[in-house]
Simulated scan of single mutants.
Amino acid sequence: MEKIYASLISGGKDSVYATYLAIKSGINVVYGVNVIPKRDDSYMFHYPNAHLAPVITEAIGLKPVILEVSGEKEREVTELRDFLRDLHVHGIIAGALASKYQKERLERICKELNIELYAPLWGRDPIEHLKDIISAGFKVIIVGVYGLGLEDLLGVEIDENVIERLAYISRRYGIHIAGEGGEFETLVTDGPIFRRRIIIESYNIRKGLSWAYMIINKYKVIEK
């Protein structure tokens, strides 16, 4: 019997790219687990535009399974564990790149459930990681900014020039160049594993003194 995997898909660049690498390596990815936190300050999961994660999962061709969590530290980890126990998969795929907090908790979940963790991005050089995503053909939009120097990048598609800009901002302000510290969040609208692409038609912007994010309220899904 072929092993069944579920990918933790937030709709951001890392979770989608990890899913791509898993599929490319021959892993049988069946589900996309879309975790939607009730709080915008979740330690583990993306909040902005979480409602689009199932749309992206379906566009990739996976079956979306939606989990709403409290967004409270540690409690949300337990909620994910209990959900995965009932899903009966052999392993999960995660886009953890440098966050020890995230990876350690996912490892703990997998150990408790006796399932495998596939985290192909872990420890990668962040600049090369961003370049790999773009060169593979993914369309990645920055939909949330939470750090100094990033304000002008809201709504911008990541390309080579943007990567250079992020490298400069990283050197100047000390942010993680790939946003692993929560400095910015992304949304993937197209890529080589997408059967359909997503077009953003309208959005609102919510902002504070040092942060801003897009709230996408209208989009369409187009066959490729």
Rank of each mutant, 00 (worst) to 15 (best):
W211S: 08
P64C: 03
S135V: 09
H176T: 05
A119C: 14
E160G: 03
I23E: 12
N28G: 11
K224W: 01
A18Q: 05
P48S: 11
D14Y: 01
E164I: 01
R75T: 15
S42G: 10
N49M: 04
I198Q: 02
G91Y: 00
L8H: 06
L52E: 00
S202A: 08
I93T: 10
D14A: 04
Y20T: 04
I222P: 01
Y47G: 07
G147W: 01
K13N: 12
I9S: 09
I193P: 03
I199T: 09
L52R: 03
I215E: 15
K24W: 04
I177G: 08
E72N: 12
I158T: 00
Y20W: 12
D159Y: 09
K139D: 14
M44F: 15
I93H: 05
P48F: 01
I158S: 02
E180R: 07
E128S: 14
I158Y: 04
I141H: 07
I222C: 01
G179A: 09
N28R: 13
A53I: 07
D190K: 05
R39Y: 10
R206G: 07
I60K: 00
E2D: 14
T57I: 12
E72A: 10
P48Q: 09
W122H: 11
K139N: 14
R75S: 13
A94Y: 06
L62Q: 02
I216V: 11
D41P: 00
G144F: 02
G123P: 10
E157V: 13
Y203D: 08
I222A: 02
E72F: 12
E185D: 06
E116L: 12
L154D: 03
L52I: 05
V69F: 02
Y146F: 15
R105D: 07
F194I: 01
Y47N: 11
G32M: 11
V55C: 08
C110A: 13
L117W: 09
Y173E: 13
L106D: 03
G95Y: 04
E183W: 00
Y20S: 11
K13P: 02
I115T: 07
R39N: 14
T186G: 00
L97G: 03
E201I: 10
I134W: 10
G137A: 08
G123L: 12
T186S: 04
A98H: 14
I66W: 00
T57Y: 05
V162Q: 06
M1I: 09
L166M: 09
N114H: 12
L209Q: 13
R75I: 15
S42C: 14
I216W: 09
I142T: 01
K220I: 00
R85H: 13
N217R: 12
N204F: 08
V188L: 07
L209T: 14
L21D: 09
N28S: 11
E128K: 13
L87H: 11
Y47I: 09
G174W: 14
G179Y: 06
V143C: 03
N114C: 02
I134A: 08
A18E: 05
P64M: 05
G137D: 10
I199C: 00
F184Y: 15
G147R: 07
G181L: 03
R105F: 12
A167L: 13
